[in-house]
Simulated scan of single mutants.
Amino acid sequence: MKTEKIGDASFETWSVDEVATAFDANEVVLIDVRTPQEYMFEHIEGALLMPMAFFNGDKLPGQSDKRIVFHCGSGVRSERVARAAIAAGVTQIAHLDGGFAAWKSAKKPYIGTNMATGAPQATTPE
C-alpha cells in the first residue's frame, strides 16, 4: 500500500490483493464510483455504488468499523473521488490501484452479464 499525506489526511493506494484480502475479511467497504450502466454490466460482488457524478464527500459514513476503499474502471475516477473526500474533511481514505481492470487482470471474481440472457452471473476467471 502506498500512502500519501495530504495535510492531516492519509490518502492510500491499495493493490488488488490488499483490497481482496481486506474485503474478504469484511474489513473494508468497497465503493464503486463508475456509472450505473458500468456497474450493471459488471461489478465486484458486494461493492456499493456511488457514481462520481453524484459524489458528496460530506455524506460519507464514518470509518470506525470499516475503512472505505473506492474503485472505478482504471483508478483515475476513484483517485479523484478519494481526493474530494479528503477535501470534504475525511482524514483517511483509500482507492484501488488500477481499478476494476486490474481486478479482472488479477483474475478476481466478479459479477458479469450473461450475454445470451442479459442476466447477471458470477464470473470466476481462470
Rank of each mutant, 00 (worst) to 15 (best):
A22C: 07
I68V: 12
M1G: 15
I86L: 09
V69G: 01
T35C: 04
G89S: 12
Q37L: 08
E38M: 04
L49D: 08
A119D: 13
A25M: 05
T21C: 04
S64V: 05
R67D: 15
F70G: 04
F55N: 06
M40K: 09
E126H: 11
D32F: 04
N114I: 02
P36C: 06
T113W: 02
T124K: 15
S105L: 13
N114H: 06
T124L: 09
A22N: 03
G118K: 02
A53I: 12
T117N: 07
P120F: 08
F11A: 06
A116W: 01
L96M: 00
C72N: 03
W103A: 09
T13L: 10
K66D: 03
D65L: 13
L48E: 15
R67A: 15
D24I: 00
Y110C: 05
S15L: 10
W14C: 07
V69L: 08
G57V: 03
E4D: 15
A106L: 13
H95P: 00
S78P: 01
A84P: 00
G75W: 03
V19L: 09
F23D: 03
I6M: 14
A102E: 00
A122K: 08
I93H: 02
V90D: 04
K107W: 02
D97H: 14
P120R: 05
A22F: 02
K66C: 01
T35V: 01
H71Q: 07
A119H: 05
E45K: 14
E12S: 12
Q63K: 11
K59M: 14
K5Y: 01
D24Y: 01
T123G: 00
G73V: 03
M52I: 06
V19K: 08
F70L: 07
I111F: 03
A87W: 05
F54G: 02
F11Y: 12
A82V: 10
A106I: 07
V16D: 05
E38F: 00
F23G: 12
P51Y: 07
I86E: 06
T3S: 13
G99S: 10
F100D: 09
L30E: 09
T113D: 03
G46T: 11
G7D: 02
I6F: 07
P51H: 03
K59L: 13
G112L: 03
F11Q: 01
D17C: 01
P36Y: 09
N26E: 13
A101H: 09
I44T: 12
G73R: 11
P61M: 15
V76M: 14
F54C: 04
G62R: 10
P125S: 11
E12H: 10
A94N: 08
E79H: 04
I111V: 15
T91L: 11
